[in-house]
């Protein structure tokens, strides 16, 4: 199993080559290579503190890289002009780990921020579209006029997803979307991501720890250890992998219980 795939670059949403990112003397990502295909949901797993979020933030340009090449939709992000960057930023949406909603704005206004910045829509349509997005992510209509401080953790995640989807992006980064949610909300969230991916043709880059999400929504999984992607493939391939870290991750007690439950439910 190789991190490389033979696919031509126009089939790829994200292509990362020989990426090095470090803080101080510590090298977090070392010669990392990763491909994300268009239209797939890629689950990105790794131990805590191994740099999963760092990779996402590097692709987004929030963290400086030391070396390497990051291409999104076939375009090298270093070569892009300022306008090119702005155009690229319209094509992706980001759900930050803690939501990162603007605290001074209501949920509705939060969702409208990218619309206001990039588009010239009539206020009525903008309101309607924002409320539609809020409904799509499963929030009640009343939530639209609330401030982030009045929302629960799950609602913040949903509102943040609504904002990430405001411009109907082609690529969505989700940083631990289901962490801190109860199992029912988490399952609904997974379902939502799947629906959106199928209807909008989204490419989803999902950093997650949630084994349930990996099973239910991810087309492929990539695993990060020692600053590198040690394996990519479908969940079945990951289960069959030999790497010791993968074996502990996917065959640990919690994972085994889940696999067992799934085998029983499909068998019955």
């Amino acid at each position: 199993m190789s991190a490389h795939s033979p696919l031509p670059s126009h089939e790829l949403a994200i292509r990362v080559r020989a990426l090095q990112v470090g803080f101080g003397t510590r090298l977090v990502l070392n010669n990392l290579e990763l491909d994300v295909r268009r239209g797939e949901v890629l689950g990105f797993v790794g131990g805590s503190g191994t740099g999963k979020s760092v990779l996402a933030r590097t692709i987004l340009g929030l963290v400086q890289k030391r070396a390497g090449r990051v291409e999104v939709f076939g375009e090298d992000l270093d070569q892009l002009s300022k306008e090119g960057h702005r155009a690229m930023e319209r094509r992706w949406g980001v759900l930050f780990q803690h939501g990162a909603l603007f605290s001074g704005l209501t949920v509705l206004q939060n969702v409208q921020v990218p619309m206001r910045e990039y588009l010239s829509l009539s206020p009525i349509l903008m309101d309607e579209l924002a409320r539609l997005k809020i409904a799509l992510v499963g929030l009640k209509p009343e939530a639209a006029d609330k401030y982030p401080s009045e929302l629960s953790g799950g609602m913040i995640k949903r509102a943040a997803l609504a904002r990430a989807l405001a411009l109907d992006p082609e690529l969505v980064f989700l940083d631990e979307p289901t962490s801190g949610l109860d199992p029912i909300s988490a399952a609904e969230f997974d379902e939502l991501i799947k629906t959106l991916q199928q209807t909008l043709g989204l490419t989803v880059f999902m950093v997650t720890h949630d084994l349930d999400s990996l099973y239910s929504v991810c087309d492929r999984v990539a695993a990060l250890a020692d600053g590198k992607v040690i394996a990519t493939g479908t969940i079945e391939q990951m289960l069959a992998a030999e790497h010791p870290w993968l074996r502990t991750y996917f065959h640990g007690t919690r994972a085994s219980r889940l696999t067992l439950a799934r085998a029983q439910s499909t068998g019955a």
């Binding site: 309101d127 309607e128 409320r131 539609l132 799509l136 209807t199």
Partner: peptide, 17 residues
């Protein structure tokens, strides 16, 4: 088909604000 699903998901609903 995918447009049909999308039309279903984003169907019109009045928001009585």
């Amino acid at each position: 088909r995918e447009h049909d699903i999308l039309l279903g998901a984003a169907h019109y609903r009045p928001f009585d604000v």
